[in-house]
Nucleic acid binder design. Structure first.
Lengths: 191, 191
DNA sequence: ATGCTACGATACAGACCTGTATCGTAGCGG
DNA sequence: CCGCTACGATACAGGTCTGTATCGTAGCAT
């Protein structure tokens, strides 16, 4: 009784995993169909094109990101604590074998043309994250919230890329410490 | 009298530009040959495979990186000054329309399998940069040179990715400030 | 039972990709 | 002058990719 998943769900999960691990261009629809055990026509019945499947994966990744973000930050008492909790959690994740970087950075790298749909979805996601950082930085009393937000943003994406390039043992083992230093420089030492 | 360049040089320059802008997988050998105005067989005479051309481009990028690094840091009086000068220069570059990210991060993303030759060259390059950061951090008197080096490393790659994703106007406009903050936290305020 | 829908499997079309084979030629050294 | 080498152009082989077309079937609702 393990599989009550619909063909569409099985397909999507397999596609998501393959895209994330091996890249969007490296994985073809035949591979996705074969690995998920469903017919190719069923794939195209649910997703009119491979690009639609990619976009669906990105939108799903966006949802998961924010669910995770809220889950992780909801127990922190202060905006400052929310920022630090996020970077603690991110450091833990990106030093894990399950991490293969960031789906949005990956798609933007593989499809660098800005008018490609997947690239646009990636930009939207990152801009939203950046805005959230700004909001939290402001609430945390940063002298220059936009500056702090951008600095944390660079750290985040650097950590994702470190994971994709080096695997689990990568320089992001010092991510959270860097975030803390930047926050303290802008907001003062912990209350 | 503009072109005393050999066919091999013309080819290489065109390939380099195309790989950097559009990605490795997106550009085919036919495109490279056509755009550089040389025959496809001439390409394969100089580079036995596309992968060899990619590796040649990466090795050349590595050389240019270090020439640039030495050029930029040689006038700084102290190791600390060298680190900050590098990040000043990097910030300037990645907020320029000529920047399309980092050739090494790009190749590692497009070819994530660690045994791919291009990925390995990229890892070597990044490890060397990381080691140089460590050396300078140590000479600059950082309390934990490895930690500071890794933190700066994350900033650097985050800045490259910000450039590839957003173009010239990106969060890396605050890169140098972040680097300075991290250095000061480890080495104390400027002497 | 029967008709309908979703599905799996397979074959196929057309494009593109890497890499090779072939041919004609221009330049250059002996 | 002559032969050799590097070159450009083109055609081609074999593979892979996206997307479509076709066929047979299993389940389900009426």
């Amino acid at each position: 009784m393990k599989t009550e998943a619909t063909p569409k769900e099985k397909l999507f999960q397999k596609a998501a995993r393959l895209f994330y691990r091996h890249g969007y261009r490296a994985i073809g629809v035949d591979t996705i169909a074969a690995e998920s055990g469903i017919g190719k026509m069923t794939l195209y019945r649910h997703y009119p094109s491979k690009d639609d499947l990619i976009v669906a994966y990105l939108k799903n990744s966006d949802e998961i990101f924010w669910e995770n973000f809220e889950q992780i930050t909801k127990n922190a008492a202060t905006p400052r604590g929310k920022l630090l909790a996020f970077f603690d959690s991110l450091q833990e994740y990106v030093t894990t074998p399950a991490c293969y970087g960031c789906p949005f950075l990956n798609v933007a790298t593989e499809y660098p043309e800005p008018d490609y749909t997947g690239h646009q979805v990636a930009i939207e996601h990152k801009q939203t994250v950046r805005a959230r950082f700004r909001q939290l930085a402001k609430e945390a009393g940063a002298r220059e919230p936009e500056v702090l937000a951008d600095q944390l943003f660079l750290l985040m994406d650097g950590a994702y890329m470190a994971s994709r390039m080096f695997g689990a043992k990568n320089p992001a083992q010092n991510l959270a410490g860097a975030a803390r230093t930047l926050v303290e420089a802008q907001c003062g030492p912990a209350e």
